[in-house]
Design a protein around this nucleic acid. Structure first.
Lengths: 124, 124
DNA sequence: CGGGATCCTATATGATACTG
DNA sequence: CAGTATCATATAGGATCCCG
């Protein structure tokens, strides 16, 4: 039943490699931006509108990181007013299935987790 | 090619539900602890030894959260010296496959990401 | 329109010392 | 052994204003 032979992928080098990547992915906005860009190419203002609550600052920062890591392409058009379009790269798209796996797990277990939290509260 | 129909799982309610759970999972130690506990039942001191760099404080805090969320069982034995054993619950174990999926993605793309970072640096 | 620059706060994490 | 308590710090994230 145990998957111990495989969890070395997580524990690996003490989890360093994995966590370095995970830190980039599991911040507040990355998955949301990637999931939104799965629709296709979008402009900066499109992303602001479609991602509720994100600030310009965090959108810019997160997009820069995604671009730096090669998950997103950034195309600037020399027009007035300026136009900048963002598109998922192949690597960016490849992140979606594992992200969905985690999202599926989370959504599937939300009821159990919330129940457990209530029981824990009343217990202590 | 697009998985847009499915990414609503991520975007859902603006990502709120997913991120509430993700915040618990993607902190510095949670996945490492869960992966370590996949071996089976372990004592507090076992975890300290097997997880390099973790402090007693963070191990305690993270274990409490996992226990509260029903991912880990905590068993206290009234002995001297005290013995406390931690075990993954079924829900806790169920987190491992999606975690492995993400870990697999990360490890598979580390080379590409590092390459992209170097290119980004020299570009700017 | 698409940011950059600046300031600010909350929180996660760490170090250390103490205890039943 | 398995924590708790306290203090300190780094950083993520947010608010606001300005610019080409």
């Amino acid at each position: 039943m145990s998957e111990y032979e495989h969890t070395c992928m997580i524990r690996g080098d003490g989890g360093k490699t994995l966590r370095a990547i995970l830190d980039q992915i599991c911040n507040k906005w990355t998955l949301l931006i990637v999931a939104t860009l799965d629709q296709g190419t979008l402009r900066f203002s499109d992303l602001v509108q479609q991602i509720p609550g994100i600030s310009q600052r965090m959108l810019t920062l997160t997009l820069r990181n995604l671009q730096r890591d090669g998950l997103v392409d950034r195309a600037v058009f020399a027009e007035v007013p300026p136009r900048v379009e963002y598109t998922l790269t192949a690597v960016g798209k490849s992140l979606i299935p594992p992200a969905l796996a985690l999202a599926g797990w989370a959504i599937e277990h939300v009821p159990h987790i919330e129940e457990s939290r209530k029981a824990y509260q009343s217990g202590s």
